[in-house]
Design a protein around this nucleic acid. Structure first.
Lengths: 113, 113
DNA sequence: GCAAATACATAATATTCTTATGTATGTTTG
DNA sequence: CAAACATACATAAGAATATTATGTATTTGC
């Protein structure tokens, strides 16, 4: 089962930022694979969604980038800026709050923490 | 605090359907007020978002409508069709699953059920 | 050596929301 | 009693963000 794409909308940026918070630095393709792995294939981030998102984070000064070569193969590593770290905490906290509200609204049982 | 609008994206349809499941029939304006009330003003559905959503549900055969007059004031009541009821269960269940995945992915603590 | 995986990127399109606008009725309050 | 506010519907222009398709190039596995 893969979640219908509309559910991902609005959470992609937060997912990416949280991964960067946990892993210090990651490159794009790595992010898609990590999310796939961590969600048992239920969330599959497409490249057409990810790269524009990463570029937007960079344009907003929330991440910095370093281009590195592994042989001839280029990898663009992303790291949270100071501002990005603060923003990540905000975003994750807002999402947690939102999820509690949705639980209440939809009378949903989630797994215990 | 009002949630940044991007969070609502993708969940609006499910929220509306769940409310209709719980309340048998509701009209548009009532839905906006009920959501506002149930979420302590944190989620405010705009009319520009709600009405197109309701029309889409109707076009998909998931709801039926009845136009009623309260004096000269028209109200359009929405009810889930049989197909809509089944779809609502699917949607709510998928969202619950998604929220568990997000909890895990973001290492979020939600309130106990 | 060919297919699949890795790794980046962008463009056209679709979806779905915000913001703005429009119409009209009913209620409250100074 | 007029004005402001609330109720109630609706649509259109624009913004944001995803999908799908496409492109380029390198590396790995069989």
């Amino acid at each position: 089962m893969i979640y219908s794409s509309e559910l991902i909308k609005g959470t992609l940026k937060t997912i990416v930022m949280k991964l960067l918070e946990d892993n210090k630095r990651m490159y794009g393709y790595e992010i898609t694979q990590r999310v796939k792995e961590l969600t048992f294939d239920k969330i599959q981030i497409t490249e057409g969604a990810l790269y524009p998102t990463l570029h937007a984070l960079e344009a907003d000064g929330l991440v910095t980038t370093e281009l590195e070569y592994n042989g001839k193969r280029a990898r663009k590593y992303y790291s949270l800026s100071k501002e990005g770290k603060a923003k990540t905490k905000e975003k994750v906290s807002e999402l947690a709050d939102f999820m509690n509200t949705m639980k209440f609204l939809l009378d949903i049982q989630t797994l215990p923490a």
